[in-house]
Design a protein around this nucleic acid. Structure first.
Lengths: 180, 180
DNA sequence: CTGTTAGTTCAGTTTATACAGAAATAACTG
DNA sequence: CAGTTATTTCTGTATAAACTGAACTAACAG
């Protein structure tokens, strides 16, 4: 795959753009997109050629993607070059990304909020307004975190099955919970 | 509120940093954080002074925040300056942000994926691999979108009540859905 | 060994974005 | 209507991040 189809190019460019909107480097997102649609693992030079970026850029992008756990190295017999392939299960990909962003961003935020609340409480003249607001925020993040932890514990294919066909059951549960 | 407490400062700086990680301008996030913890609406100059940024910067940041629907103008009797206050319900804030990011980013992505899949199908020699991968991605986004739409329909306080106290019920539902 | 290929690291450059300050506009006051 | 205050818009500058190309390291092949 040295030349991209029109759809492939469209997808990769859009994915790169999406990346920037969510705080991910454009090249990193593009490499990820390319590996996602590629039928077979690619080596660095193929990637660089296809995306028209420097090899060094590809190297660091691949490093980043491996750090996220989205891409892994594959070796082919008779070829000493590293080849790379993306995780292909989109739902699993989603989980990996959420886990990682939680670890990198949500957990530190929880820490920060807890230390702010403690600090306010221990001050001489505690600012009740601010304490209240920060507590709300803290409770929100704690709630979402535990909700996610619960969802995370579901058997792997439950969520996708649920989303696909369980509208009825879900609505029934909603009504149950709503009447409380 | 012209001088910030230590906790307030810590919160605002962290929030600004979080913003950048999620593709939101640092100043915008800081202004939002400040208004969130502020006990009363603030006018532009107060904000600029407190955060040590230019008024013009505050002006555009406030515009942005109003565009998101997170901040609104308030007028006080005997004061012709605009004052601004943030939405204070964190759960509602979350919904507003998700709705807006869906509209700005997810919906265009769905469009892009649909047009890619169509384009591949209509090509002379359809690339089956790529079609499959893009279809998976499309189904994922469609699934998440409809799941979110359902959650969105829940009565306003259901989710927070659920998160707070419904661990038991939730686990029971999980087991129900898991055994299917 | 020596030449070649793969991969990484680093220094310098480019690019995009954020930001400040000035200028322009608008709204109000006496 | 003149003077003042609030707000927005615009232009140029500063900053941070991304990216390239070259230098370097490592691994291998003959």
């Amino acid at each position: 795959m040295s030349k991209l189809s029109s759809a492939g190019e469209k997808f990769i460019l859009h994915w790169g753009e999406m990346g920037t909107r969510w705080g991910v480097n454009r090249s990193v997102a593009q490499v990820h997109a390319l590996l996602y649609v590629s039928p077979n693992p690619l080596h660095a030079e193929e990637i660089a050629d296809t995306l028209s970026v420097a090899r060094s850029n590809v190297s660091t992008s691949l490093r980043e993607l491996q750090g996220w756990g989205l891409v892994r190295v594959v070796h082919l017999l008779g070829d000493r070059r590293d080849h790379f392939e993306s995780m292909h299960d989109v739902w699993e990909m989603f989980h990996v990304i959420l886990d990682e962003r939680k670890r990198r961003e949500i957990d530190p935020t929880l820490q920060m909020l807890r230390s702010c609340v403690t600090e306010i409480q221990q001050g001489e003249k505690p600012d009740k307004h601010m304490q209240e607001r920060m507590t709300w925020m803290l409770e929100f993040f704690e709630g979402m975190t535990s909700l996610y932890a619960e969802a995370r514990r579901l058997p792997p294919h439950t969520l996708r099955a649920w989303v696909r066909g369980k509208g009825k059951v879900r609505r029934w549960i909603d009504s149950l919970l709503g009447s409380d």
